[in-house]
Design a protein around this nucleic acid. Structure first.
Lengths: 234, 234
DNA sequence: CAAAATCTTTACGCTTTCTTAATGCAGGAT
DNA sequence: ATCCTGCATTAAGAAAGCGTAAAGATTTTG
C-alpha cells in the first residue's frame, strides 16, 4: 500500500512544489495550511510521515511537534526557512526527527523521507493487522505466504492461496461467486464459476479433514461460499 | 547507564573536538580512525550511535554503512565535508540515519545525536543482532562477506552473495521474484526473472548437498523462492 | 592488453499449475 | 417417480513457468 504523507505548509508555491514531487513518487499525501487543520488530519489520515514548515500562521511549530508527540510517534521532518541553530535544536529536542533548511534539494528531501519510512517499516505500528490468521487447525501466515493445517505446512498454488486469503479475510461471511472471481482474478478476465468450483474442491482436499463434509469452506447453493469460524472448544 | 558512541574519524583535529564535546555530555565513546578498526569496535563496544566521517582512508563510506547495516540497525549519523547532493542521497539510502555537513554546529550535532538515542530508547534494538547467520550447515559471515557450507568456505560471486543475504534475512518467508530483483539489483532494473533462475541454479549447486532436491532454497512456482529453516535435530 | 571471472541471454526438455470438459450425484419442482 | 438445475469430482489437455547448459557480452584482474 502506498505510504501517506502529511504536508504542513502555508506557502502555496512550496506546497505545490512538494505536491508535484510526492505525486511522481507515488506517495499518497494531503496538505494542511495551518496547525489546527494539520492536527485534525493527523487523526483522520494517520500519515506515515509528517513534513512540517515551522512557520505556521496559527501556532508555534515547536508546540505543534510536542502536541503530535503527545500521542503519536509519526516521524516528523521539519522544513524551514529559519536556519538558526537554536530553532533546529528546539525542534529536534521537541520530537522532530530531521530538519532541512530552505532552500533545500528536492532529491535530498525525498531521501530523508525514505529514511523515515524505512524506520517505520522496521518498527511496525501497533494498529497493524495480525500477520497470522488462525481458525481452528488452519493457519495462514500472510507475511510468509504459507498455510498450515493441524501444525503441518500445506503447499497451495498461487490461486488457491489467494482464494484462501480472501475467504479468511471475510470469515463468517458468504461471498458470492462474482466477488470471489473478481478478488482472485483481479481485473483480468474472470475465469468462470465452474473453474472456481474446481479450485474449491482442491482446496478442500488440502485443508479439510474430510473433504466430503467440509467444516472450513461451506457451499451456499446459487450464491457462493463462506469460511466458517471453527469452534474453539473442539 | 551512559550511552556509548563510536566516532569514526581520521582527522585528529575534528576528532578532538568531538571528543571534548562528548565528554562534557557524559557520553561514553571511542574513536576509530579507519573502517576496519571501526567495524571491529562495532562488535566489541556495541555502540548506541555511530558518528561517521565519510572520508575514510581504507574504504568507501557507503560500503561501510552497508556493511554495518547488513547485521545491525545502530543509528548512523554521517558527518562529511562533502556537501554534494549525490553523496548525501547515497549515504542516506545505504542506511544512514542523518547527514550533517561540515563545518557543523556542535550543538546541532548533539541535538541530532539525542534524536537518534531517543529513537533507540523507544524501540530497543534486539540484541540478537549477530554478524553471522547460521542455518543448518550454512553460515554467512556478514562482515567478511563469506559463506560456509558444512564448515568449508564456499566462493560466491557478488550477486550470488547478495541473493543469499536477502534470502537469509527473511528465512521462512516466500519472497517474490520482484522483491528479490529489487533487493539485489537495487534501483537499476536490468536483469529479469530468467536471470534470477540462473543465479538460483548456481547458488543451489554451491550450497545444496543435492541440488536437485534442495533443502535450503525452495521454489514457489509462479511466485518466487524462499529459504527454509533447517531442522536443528538433523 | 590479454586472461579470467562474472554476468546476461537464449534455447529446450520437463514440471507445475490452470483451464476446460465430462460424469455422476443431490435436492427441489412438476 | 422423473426431470431439471446446480454442485463436486475426476481426468486430460493447454499454458505458463522452471532448471539447466551453453554461448555471448561485460567487467575485473593480472
Amino acid at each position: 500500500m502506498n505510504k501517506r504523507i502529511l504536508v504542513v505548509e502555508d506557502d502555496v508555491a512550496i506546497g505545490n512544489l512538494i505536491k508535484m514531487t510526492l505525486t511522481t513518487q507515488q506517495y499518497e499525501f494531503d496538505i494542511a495550511e495551518d496547525g489546527t487543520a494539520a492536527l485534525r488530519k493527523c487523526l483522520s489520515m494517520k500519515p506515515d510521515v509528517i513534513i512540517l514548515d515551522l512557520g505556521l500562521p496559527d501556532m508555534d511549530g515547536v508546540d505543534f511537534i510536542e502536541k503530535v508527540r503527545s500521542w503519536a510517534q509519526t516521524p516528523i521532518i521539519v522544513v524551514s526557512a529559519r536556519g538558526e541553530e537554536r530553532d533546529k535544536i528546539q525542534a529536534l529536542d521537541a520530537g522532530a526527527d530531521d530538519y532541512v533548511t530552505k532552500p533545500f534539494s528536492v532529491d535530498e528531501l525525498l531521501a530523508r523521507i525514505r529514511v523515515a519510512l524505512r524506520r517505520s517499516a522496521n518498527d511496525p505500528r501497533p494498529d497493524q493487522e495480525q500477520p497470522v490468521f488462525v481458525n481452528g487447525g488452519l493457519e495462514i501466515h500472510y507475511l510468509a505466504n504459507t498455510v498450515f493445517v493441524n501444525g503441518k505446512e500445506v503447499h497451495v498454488t498461487p490461486i488457491e492461496y489467494k482464494l484462501l486469503v480472501v475467504l479468511s479475510k471475510h470469515v463468517g461471511k458468504v461471498l458470492t461467486h462474482n466477488f470471489l472471481l473478481k478478488e482472485v482474478w483481479q481485473n483480468a478476465l474472470p475465469s468462470d464459476v465452474p473453474s472456481l468450483r474446481v479450485f474449491m474442491a482442491t482446496l478442500r482436499k488440502k485443508i479439510e479433514d474430510n473433504p466430503s463434509e467440509p467444516t472450513y469452506i461451506q457451499t451456499h447453493v446459487r450464491v457462493g461460499y463462506r469460511m466458517l469460524r471453527q469452534e474453539s472448544g473442539e
